[in-house]
Design a protein around this nucleic acid. Structure first.
Length: 481
RNA sequence: GCCCCAUUCGUCUAGUGGCCCAGGACGCGGCCCUCUCAAGGCCGAAACAGGGGUUCGAGUCCCCUAUGGGGCACCA
């Protein structure tokens, strides 16, 4: 959502403003503001005004603007557009319960809407706490012009007398936003679908204030991968296989995803680049972005596509950048790799990675010195045991002295040994065996690079172990046969 | 229960009355390439929720139904 706001602002040369909406004391979490800014920064979405950099309409933290909201709430009360409500939460809950049972209306029952000035004065004298509620229109209808969906018409009897100012003196979202959006000169509101139902209230607030409302665009909701319910930052989400799914920006970061690819991915949800193009930098998407083109239907994130997209991005990066990106993750996983080794393997690595953290799996052979190796793993139908042994021995001897010890050189010689060893004259079976002997893995980066990365000494050592293994195996076969 | 929003392949989407017996992408299956895994290339299966209209003509416009979602807080 922030991405769409950002793209829209960037396209039209507008300001992208970061405003912290922290008017709920029960929910405010220390450090939350920092976390949000950190996430946006990581994604590369820069803002023009915000709590950290200020701007002409500050402060940008709502809890610091409480006085302003209070003034305007008072103004509404004076004008008769709002009123003080002395109902207690308990009373409200009880009446709501009764309403539910009778199956009747909904929302606040407007109990305090028509209190006389005397009744109000009396209650205030008693020191009762109160909230300020909006006196919503009782008849007619409100039309919300929405750029994505067209006009949305809501009967006014659906609109309830929402609380504007809570008993702790802080505003609710409704009041705070309308006031802030007006004074911060917000031209467009892009927000999630779930706000549609309170949009009539907001429009009526603008009307009561006599202010010009902004343009609304209600973005499609992002659903759980299962399609059940909306995706929420506050709860965990799971896919159809019951696996937990990433939701927060920092989770994607920790999982090894790449910001430009993530932006690319997100831009493709609810909107599309056009020209059948899937991979694109967000900068190229900006000039093409139009609110009218946003798909209004709710959506699920196609996580498989994110992996593919990230893979595409990584393939296109230059090796040095990939290596630099992978390094911190390997460090965090406690693996030591020299920059030279990492760089040597990066070209092979980058066509394989779906995300940076995948590097660990492909580089395992580098630190698994005691990985188990069995004769079974070394055998191959097209490679007679004696020939395998001979070839392995030849390879070992060759690698012990090969100069220069680089992928190109050994890549020219090793296949020749293999071709001579197999029945069909193809090097494949032998090279497969060699890879298992050297990397101890069925799946590894390409053989020659792997050997060079491992280094001469460790390669020879592992080959000696493989040869010894084959020898004992051969002895056993002889004895039993 | 009431109100609102939505509904094209499994998923993300293109499509704004004839160019659509519906295009792209991911995923899936097959083949090729190949030292494994990838990457790459080629091929394939796979959708307009249902029903009524409007129109010469409907995925595209209208209505109803169904399904999914959102809201109905002193949360945002």
């Amino acid at each position: 959502m922030a991405l769409y706001n950002w793209m829209f602002a960037r396209k039209h040369g507008g300001q992208f403003i970061l405003r912290i909406e922290d008017t709920d004391r029960k929910r405010s979490v220390p450090g939350a503001t920092e976390a949000i800014m950190e996430a946006l920064r990581w994604m590369g979405l820069d803002w023009d005004e915000g709590p950290d950099i200020g701007g002409p309409y500050g402060p940008y933290v709502q809890s610091q603007r409480a006085e302003l909201y209070r003034q305007w709430a008072d103004w509404l009360v004076e004008q008769g557009h709002a009123y003080k409500c002395f109902c207690t939460p308990e009373e409200l809950a009880a009446r709501r319960e009764a309403q539910k049972e009778s199956g009747g209306g909904h929302g606040y029952d407007r109990h305090c809407r028509n209190l006389t000035p005397e009744e109000i004065a009396e209650r205030e004298a008693d020191g009762l706490s109160y909230v300020v509620r909006f006196a919503a229109p009782l008849e007619g209808e409100t039309v919300i012009p929405d750029v994505i969906r067209g006009d949305i018409t809501v009967p006014n009897k659906q609109i309830t007398d929402a609380v504007l100012l809570k008993s702790d003196g802080l505003p609710t979202y409704h009041l705070a936003n309308v006031v802030d959006d007006h004074f911060m000169e917000i031209s467009h509101i892009l927000r999630a679908d779930e706000w549609i139902s309170s949009a009539p209230l907001h429009l009526n607030l603008y009307e009561a204030f006599g202010w010009e409302p902004p343009v609304y665009a209600h973005l499609p909701l992002v659903l759980n991968p299962s399609g059940k319910g909306k995706l929420s930052k506050r709860t965990q989400a799971f896919d159809d296989d019951g696996r937990e799914v990433l939701v927060k920006v920092e989770e994607f970061r920790d999982a090894g995803y790449y910001p430009p690819a993530l932006n690319n991915f997100l831009a493709n949800v609810g909107w599309s680049f056009g020209d059948d193009r899937e991979v694109f930098p967000i900068e190229e998407a900006v000039p093409r972005f139009r609110l009218e083109d946003i798909n209004p239907a709710p959506t699920r994130l196609p996580y498989d596509k994110l992996d593919w997209l990230t893979g595409q991005w990584i393939q296109e990066m230059d090796p040095l950048t990939v290596a630099q990106a992978v390094k911190p993750y390997l460090d965090a996983q406690g693996h030591e790799v020299s920059p030279e080794t990492l760089l040597l393997l990066t070209p092979a690595l980058q066509v394989r990675l779906k995300k940076f953290t995948d590097a660990e799996e492909f580089l395992q052979f580098l630190w698994e010195d005691d990985a188990p190796l069995t004769a079974d793993q070394l055998s191959h139908a097209k490679l007679p045991p004696e020939a395998a042994m001979t070839a392995l021995q030849q390879a070992r001897d060759y690698l012990a002295t090969a100069e220069p010890f680089d992928a190109e050189t050994i890549g020219a010689e090793l296949p020749r040994i293999g071709e001579a060893a197999t029945l069909n004259g193809k090097a494949g079976p032998f090279l497969g065996m060699l890879r298992r002997a050297v990397t101890r893995q069925a799946v590894s980066p390409p053989l020659y690079e792997s050997i060079v990365a491992l280094g001469r000494a460790r390669t020879i050592d592992r080959l000696d172990q493989a040869i010894a293994l084959l020898e004992t195996e051969a002895d056993r076969t002889t004895e039993s046969g």
